[in-house]
Simulated scan of single mutants.
Amino acid sequence: MEYTYLGKTGLRISRMGFGGIPIQKIDAEGTRTLMHKLAEEGVNYIDTARGYTVSEEYLGYGLEGIRDQFVIATKSMSRTKDAMAADIQISLNNLRTDHIDLYQVHNPSMDQLEQVIGKGGALEALEEAKASGKIGHIGLTAHSTAVFEKALELDWVETIMFPYNIVENQGEELIRKCAEKGIGFIDMKPLAGGAIEDGRLALRYVCSNPDVTVTIPGMAEIAELEENIAACSDQTPLTLEEKEKMDEVRRQLGTNFCRRCNYCAPCSVGIGIPNVFLMEGYLLRYNLEEWARARYEKLPVKASACIGCGKCETRCPYHLPIRQMLKKAAQEFGE
């Protein structure tokens, strides 16, 4: 495992970390098994969030007895001082620890960022928690390049998390600036939220960029962990064949695709929007028509149930035309 320092935090971390979203679909014992395997393999960076339902709790259970072998990062969408202080304490309790190495402001809009740094904003709670030793460092996550660019100007921001993968390189110049300024860059969505089928190819691309401090693929199984470690540990230059495959992925996906972040939820009529688009991807891109149609059929609410209210589109950080995309998916599946 290759190690590096997380920008000016001084934290020594593995170049590949652990993304804590998928463990919501397993259980606490499965998480414990994964955590011990991480320790064995030398993966020491863990990412989770207050918003990932049971993720913090499962990780707290799974890390008992081995917590000191890991750098733990979590985040909160709270924007006010009181709400952020409450979330920090909940995170400490869930993670069963007396300190969290990195606490991040989770995906603020430009207006929300102003609230965070203003009087009575979340930054006050973060700085107080840092002074008291409850948290070690402060970072920020974003899906917007405007927020990313603004974060680079804020002296309290020690790390920035942003999507970067084969089909999303809109932040590449800003990622380079992170390296110049000593800000740790944490790469989320290395597989574009699961849209990129070839995980090894996706991780090879991300790790070929020396400005990426750490990438955090989500994992829920030992097999996924082993495959990801193999990909991130391969430091040989990208081959012509790999680059051609990457070009093909770009042609297939373009930019108008769902990253499965689920920020669009809840749907007014209960459509599992990311699941619809996931099945559509299997149907159209991966030659798995029978498999995709069978699983789509089991979805409790189909794409055709969309009432066109548009609430999902106001929440989507990628500004996708979700209503139009749902209509197209309904046509593809015939319901």
Rank of each mutant, 00 (worst) to 15 (best):
L191D: 00
E158F: 08
A223M: 09
G19I: 02
L140I: 04
A179L: 08
D211F: 07
C232G: 03
I66F: 06
C261N: 05
Y263C: 04
D87G: 15
G133D: 02
I66Y: 06
G182A: 09
K8E: 11
L225F: 12
E226Y: 07
C261I: 02
M84N: 11
R12K: 14
G272K: 15
I175S: 11
G199M: 08
L326E: 00
T255P: 04
A28S: 14
K327M: 08
A83K: 01
R50L: 08
T9K: 09
Q331Y: 10
E290H: 03
G218P: 11
E244T: 09
Q235H: 13
E180K: 14
I138M: 10
R15A: 12
I135G: 01
F148L: 11
R50K: 14
C207W: 06
N287W: 00
C207E: 11
E248T: 09
P266F: 02
L253F: 12
M188C: 07
C309N: 00
Q89Y: 09
Y52G: 14
D111G: 10
R204W: 11
Q24A: 00
L63S: 01
M279Q: 04
Y164C: 14
Y103E: 07
P217M: 02
M35Q: 05
K177W: 00
T97P: 01
P217T: 05
M1V: 15
G272P: 05
L95S: 03
Y3S: 09
